[in-house]
């Protein structure tokens, strides 16, 4: 009896200790010391200051590299006229529609192929073949088929968003530990419970990774689609500004793409963190 309580208390101690440790860890993670953040921000800030000063003294051409303050003014103007919002709205709509269509189909196809080796044999070779065709190479074909309108743009984005989710969902399902399948058999899981309680949760890390990659691919395809010819959207804004040598507006467009690309990625990573907190892996 004495050794049991011994084990229990050491286990408790262990746990407390670990809690403390993890509490310390999360604290560190949430709030890196101020000096670290300052160090990280110092370089960009320094560059911006040099850039601004060099521009003000006319050391660099305003048409090639407008000053940060000019870019900011262009940004404010675009917001004031409501132009930026209109273009942004249409770009976002294209990206989301294309992503939902392509990513959704990719996820479904990945699940179907993952669940059944017969579906894999019929579907996978064709899809793998299509996967190797670069998106940029099919642009002329899409324009011939669907014209310059919304359809060809959305389809191009869908094509790009399809494959990352397809490949990763497939990989995730096939990666489920077969030892856990034995457990499911012994516990008499129904077919449905096997999918919802075993396969999908086990494949979730891969599916979420696919989601992130798909979002990134959709964003890239959006830029390509809008540059290939359109009359609205952030890509159009950039092309239009280029023709009139409004370099600061080009910069605003690029920054918008960067910020929202990062934001969508962070959103998925946030869900990743919440949904995958059970994972026991190296956190660096």
């Amino acid at each position: 009896m004495s050794d049991q309580t011994g084990v229990l208390t050491t286990a408790n101690l262990d746990r407390k200790q670990r809690r403390k440790e993890s509490a310390v860890k999360t604290k560190n993670r949430k709030k890196p010391p101020l000096s670290h953040r300052v160090r990280g921000l110092a370089l960009p800030f320094f560059i911006l200051v040099i850039w601004e000063i060099a521009g003000a003294y006319g050391l660099i051409s305003a048409t090639l590299l407008p000053r940060p303050s000019e870019i900011f003014i262009a940004f404010k103007d675009l917001i004031r006229t409501g132009e930026l919002f209109t273009h942004f709205k249409i770009s976002l709509l294209r990206a989301i529609t294309g992503f939902l269509l392509g990513g959704g189909l990719g996820l479904l196809a990945g699940l179907a192929v993952g669940f059944s080796s017969k579906t894999e044999q019929t579907l996978d070779p064709t899809l793998q073949m299509l996967r190797t065709i670069p998106s940029l190479a099919v642009i002329p074909l899409f324009i011939l088929w669907f014209g310059f309108g919304e359809l060809s743009k959305i389809l191009l984005i869908s094509k790009s968003a399809f494959f990352p989710l397809y490949v990763n969902a497939f990989l995730g399902i096939r990666g489920v530990d077969s030892k856990l399948f034995d457990v499911a058999k012994i516990l008499e899981f129904s077919k449905w419970k096997q999918i919802t309680k075993l396969i999908l949760p086990a494949a979730l890390p891969n599916i979420l990774l696919g989601l992130r990659l798909s979002l990134g691919a959709a964003w890239l395809a959006l830029v390509a689609a809008e540059l290939m010819g359109s009359s609205e959207g952030i890509g159009y804004l950039i092309m239009d500004a280029r023709q009139f040598s409004q370099t600061s507006v080009v910069f605003v467009g690029i920054i918008i793409f960067a910020v929202f690309g990062k934001a969508s990625d962070s959103l998925v990573r946030y869900f990743e963190k919440r949904l995958l907190k059970w994972r026991d892996s190296f956190i660096g």
Binding site: K179, K197, P201, L204
Partner: peptide, 13 residues
């Protein structure tokens, strides 16, 4: 009921 050498728990639960 079967107990394997390793616990074989579902890590997400």
């Amino acid at each position: 009921g079967f107990i394997f050498q390793e616990p074989r728990l579902f890590p997400w639960l």
